[in-house]
């Protein structure tokens, strides 16, 4: 069984929800991205989303867009991102890693070549933000053949028939975009999210993670009550940007730990109630 499915199975058995931090590869810690990823796992991350920098990140808000710019300014390439994953795997063979980015750098490398290199490095899933299920049949066969899970988005305005189309292409988990907006937006309606997550569960058997706009422990706990987990990116990156002289690994641990605690407390409560 691949690492993603194994992790979600274990979480289900433990009645815990997935905590998934997102960081852009190469930022803010440069070569220390590997250490940062290990710190996130130590602080309770179940799955890691690693951003592949792109020059034109049109679905991202300013926090992630600037992280991309800084990483690219350091000369970070897709093959460097794969090397980061490879070095992370030297010490951690359990935690799934999902690459998140845009299609062009992957298409530029070639789908098949990318899929093989990513799988060899220890990548488990790939979320391509600007790849819709309609365009996916050119891309996903190479990913699947290499054992990579193609991960797709669903949005608040995704119509029901499309949910089935998405379910057909998707593996690993479904990423529910919690609001109409870019990453890092700040106006989440948690009741609406809960309603939509329940709708999605009627169409899709994959675990459903919620991201875009989750900034703190309270929101994470509320959302995790219905969803199978949460993704936190911009708020974490902002904390790292604002860290001053403190080591990035400490800031990341301190950021994630209370969220983990709140989610586990929430799971405990609903567990008792059930």
């Amino acid at each position: 069984m691949n690492r993603l499915d194994a992790t979600f199975d274990q979480l289900k058995r433990d009645r815990r929800k997935a905590l998934v931090p997102y960081v852009t590869a190469g930022d803010p810690a440069g070569d220390d991205t590997v250490a940062l990823l290990h710190a996130l796992v130590e602080a309770g991350a179940d799955v890691l989303e690693l951003g592949v920098p792109f020059s034109d990140p049109m679905a991202d808000g300013p926090t992630v867009a600037l992280a991309c710019e800084r990483a690219l300014a350091k000369g970070l390439r897709l093959i460097d991102v794969l090397q980061i994953v490879g070095r992370f795997r030297e010490r951690d063979t359990q935690t799934p890693i999902v690459l998140m980015g845009y299609l062009n750098p992957i298409e530029s490398m070639g789908y098949s070549r990318f899929a093989k290199a990513a799988a060899a490095a220890g990548v488990d899933g790939v979320l391509i933000v600007d790849l819709t299920p309609e365009e996916a049949p050119d891309v996903t066969p190479d990913l699947r053949e290499a054992g990579l899970a193609p991960i797709f988005l669903a949005a608040p305005n995704t119509q029901e028939p499309r949910m089935r189309a998405i379910a057909q292409e998707a593996a690993g988990y479904l990423y529910y975009v919690s609001l109409k907006g870019v990453t890092g937006s700040n106006r989440l309606d948690t009741d609406e999210v809960a309603k939509r997550v329940r709708q999605l569960k009627a169409h899709i058997s994959l675990p459903i993670l919620v991201g875009f706009g989750i900034r703190d422990a309270d929101t994470a706990a509320i959302v995790a009550d219905t969803a199978d987990g949460v993704v936190i990116g911009s708020a974490l990156i902002q904390a790292l940007v604002d860290r001053g002289e403190r080591p990035a690994v400490d800031v990341a641990r301190n950021f994630l730990a209370p969220i983990r605690a709140a989610m586990d407390a929430g799971a405990q409560t609903s567990g008792n109630a059930a």
């Binding site: 819709t132 365009e135 119509q159 907006g181």
Partner: peptide, 12 residues
């Protein structure tokens, strides 16, 4: 050509 956008733009 085609349509390479994030999911939120599909409906509009």
């Amino acid at each position: 050509g085609g349509s390479f956008v994030s999911e939120t733009l599909i409906e509009p």
